[in-house]
Design a protein around this nucleic acid. Structure first.
Lengths: 191, 191
DNA sequence: TACCTAAAAGGACATTTGTCCTCCTTGAAA
DNA sequence: TTTCAAGGAGGACAAATGTCCTTTTAGGTA
C-alpha cells in the first residue's frame, strides 16, 4: 500500500554523496503540499524518509489518491520528459525528507549514468504494473474484500493513514468505508 | 480512448529498415490472444497497424480493460526489466500488425540508442499519466459524464468497439451502460 | 477543568448499479 | 427460406453506495 523502492533509494544516496552532485536535500513538515496539480516544477523529488500521498483532485474538491509514497519513490518525474504540467498533487503525511534533483541534473544522469537510467526505467515500469490491477480489483470486488487485502498487505494502515485518505485511496466515501469496517469487525476478529 | 504513439511508430519503422535489425514483423487475426496474463514471453510488441485491447481478468472471468492500443503503442515491455510475469492479456480487436523485438534486442537498443531510450522512457511516463486520471474520473463522475467524455474524445467508439468492451473499459456492466446510453439519447441528440 | 475543533461513527433515506431474466435483431450457415 | 447463435436492449427487483445529517470521541489549548 505504501510503495517503496529501496534499490533506487540506496543508489541516489550514493550519487548524492559524490563531489559536486547537484542533488539537494529538502525537508518538509507533515501536511505540506509539495507539488500541486496542473503546474510546472523544475525538479524531481525522491523520498529519503517519510510518507506522502499522491492524489488527483477534481473541481468539486474530491481527492482520489493514486499512491502512498515511501522511501525511494520519486515524484515530479513524469514531467521531465515533455514539458507537461503535473497530473497529481503530492502532500506529505508524516514529516518528509527528499532528495531534490533539478531537471537538468536528472537529464544528465539519465544520459550519462546507465545504472541510473535502468533504475528509473524500472521505477516507471513498476508504477504502471502497480496501477493496473489496483483499479480493476477495486471495481470488481466488494469493499470488504479490498480492506482485507489492504490489511494483509499493510496491517497497521488504519493507524498511519487517516480514514478519509483510506477512503479516497479505495475510491469510496468515508461513510461506505465505515460501514464495511463495521461489518468486518462483527464478522471476524481480523480487524 | 485508443492510444497511439506516432513518434515511436516512425522511429521503430526506421530501425526495422536497418540492416540486421533483428526486428520482426508479425501479423495477427482479429480476436487473437497475443499475450496472456501471468505468463512470460521473450519479446516486446509494437503496433504497426490495427487495434488491440489490453485487459486484466479476474478469477470470475470479469475483464477490466486498461487501454485500447493503436499504432505505435507497445505491449509486453513491462516485463523486460525484471523477470516478472505479465499483468495483462492483450487481444487483437481488428487485424493486427506488429513489430516484435526479442528482449535481447530491446535491451541492446535501450543501452546503445539514446533516442530509442528516450522514446521508451516517454512512452512509459505517458502510460502512467494516462492511467492516473482515467480511473479517478470514472469513480467520481456519473456514467453518463464518462460516456459524453468518450464520445468527444473518440466519436465513433460505439462502431469500432463492442458494447461489452466499452463496459469493461469504463468498469461497469453492459446493463448499466445501456441504461446510461438510453438516458443520453432521450436527453440530447448528441448520441 | 472546561472548551474547542477535527476526525470518526453511524442513522435514515435516496440513488445508482448490479443481477437475472426475457425478448429482439442481425448475420452467417444449413 | 429456415435456423441458430451472439450481441444488443431493457424490465423487475435486489444490493451496494452515496448524501445529508447528528452524535460521539479524542487531542490540543486557554
Amino acid at each position: 500500500m505504501i510503495r517503496t523502492n529501496p534499490e533506487l533509494a540506496t543508489y541516489i544516496q550514493s550519487l548524492w554523496a559524490l563531489e559536486g552532485s547537484q542533488i539537494l536535500k529538502e525537508d518538509f513538515d507533515p501536511k505540506e503540499v509539495i507539488i500541486e496539480q496542473d503546474r510546472r516544477y523544475g525538479k524531481v523529488h525522491l523520498i529519503r524518509e517519510g510518507i506522502a500521498k499522491c492524489y488527483i483532485s477534481d473541481e468539486n474538491g474530491k481527492e482520489f489518491i493514486q499512491e502512498f509514497l515511501g522511501e525511494g519513490m520519486e515524484f515530479g518525474e513524469l514531467e521531465v520528459f515533455d514539458n507537461y504540467t503535473t497530473i497529481c498533487s503530492v502532500e506529505s503525511i508524516t514529516a518528509l525528507k527528499t532528495y531534490a534533483l533539478p531537471h537538468s541534473t536528472y537529464h544528465k544522469l539519465l544520459d550519462t549514468d546507465p545504472k541510473f537510467n535502468k533504475l528509473i526505467m524500472k521505477a516507471l515500469a513498476n508504477k504502471i504494473r502497480f496501477k493496473a490491477p489496483r483499479h480493476s480489483y477495486q471495481h470488481s470486488y466488494p469493499i470488504e474484500d479490498n480492506l482485507i487485502r489492504l490489511k494483509k498487505l499493510f496491517p497497521e494502515f488504519t493507524e498511519v493513514i487517516s480514514k478519509k485518505d483510506i477512503a479516497n485511496y479505495i475510491g469510496i466515501t468515508p461513510r461506505s468505508l465505515n460501514r464495511a469496517l463495521k461489518e468486518l469487525k462483527e464478522k471476524s476478529d481480523f480487524f
